[in-house]
Design a protein around this nucleic acid. Structure first.
Lengths: 182, 182
DNA sequence: ACATAACCGTAACGCTTGTTATGTGAATGG
DNA sequence: CCATTCACATAACAAGCGTTACGGTTATGT
């Protein structure tokens, strides 16, 4: 329901109806709607975190698995990502929620950074600041999610995987480390 | 005002007040709110398109300029991107608006594709399907926008440019063209 | 067992929303 | 020069919103 109507069309009554309760229950646990939204995001976060990781592995394949785990490749992942993208509207309008999101993505980058560092030690990725590489990789995945959600025809599952592998291939090939021409 | 409250907090009266008119004017020109929103997005699109391009240039620097033009590097670009990201919520909930977005991003990819193809002919980029490379590049930029909006501290202007140059450097270095190990 | 608090449904409140109806002055055109 | 349409303000409308008040039930502690 959140996946279909987004956070913009979220009402207390709709939430209450969906879980077979009333607005009285909601206001009892959440003083205001903002708190309900914040809770929904936390819930979504931990649901995303406990997604069935597709055999993580180590090294570059671990990085690949982590990035694959984000993409909207399944119906469930599509719903989750729709809710996630939808939340950016309400989050941008509320500094507190915005800060939560910043923290979440920073944490996600850190996990990716560790995986990248591990891949570097295995020699599967060229040297370079792993945090910086992680920031780039997460940008890529996030943007791919957005495009895939809006244009599922142009970005079917195999295309998304294809593009991800393109990216990883480019990452793995050692480019010159120094400043490119401006 | 849209930049601050997003599309979720958009009301006819607020729009009317902002341009010194009343709801009567709005309903006269737009049968329903959906049409007002659609018009706002078209307006934003052509405003983004006619942004002062920073000396486009040809080849790889043209690609770089096009991608730089999207990033939230200035206060104005931050506002524009906030509105843009905010629109994703209402767009995902409305198939018609969703289709408009898909078309917009497809068009943007096409422009990028042409620039990339030109860079390839100059030998500044290795061969490979330019449309595919463009899809990857736009994913990267889009995701970088999102992260920069939520965490401006971690993604100041110079960091964004840095990351973009990292990406372009990786693009420019010829990786093996064939399938990477899965 | 009894007082107290937690739990939660019911219903109302005030407000804002998108939309519609109506009025009025300006423009238009035959 | 008058009839008609256009452009827009004003105002009202019903619906839906988040929030609050209150009542009854259930649990909890003493």
């Amino acid at each position: 329901m959140l996946a279909a109507h987004g956070f913009g069309g979220l009402t207390l009554r709709a939430v209450a109806a969906e879980l077979g309760a009333t607005t009285g229950l909601l206001t009892h646990y959440f003083p205001a709607k903002r708190d309900l939204v914040a809770h929904a995001l936390e819930l979504l976060e931990q649901r995303s975190a406990s997604r069935p990781r597709p055999a993580a592995g180590v090294g570059l394949s671990g990085v690949r698995a982590a990035m694959l785990g984000v993409l909207p490749l399944t119906a469930e992942a599509i719903d989750t990502n729709r809710i996630w993208v939808s939340s950016w509207d309400v989050a941008l309008a509320d500094p507190a929620l915005s800060g939560d999101h910043a923290r979440r993505y920073a944490q996600s980058r850190d996990k990716l950074r560790d995986l990248i560092a591990a891949a570097q030690q295995l020699g599967e990725l060229p040297p370079g600041d792993p945090a910086r590489i992680a920031a780039g990789a997460q940008s890529f995945v996030l943007g791919l999610v957005v495009q895939a959600l809006f244009d599922p025809t142009a970005f079917p599952s195999h295309r998304q995987v294809e593009l991800l592998d393109d990216y990883l291939t480019a990452l793995a090939s050692p480019g010159q480390v120094k400043e490119p021409g401006r």
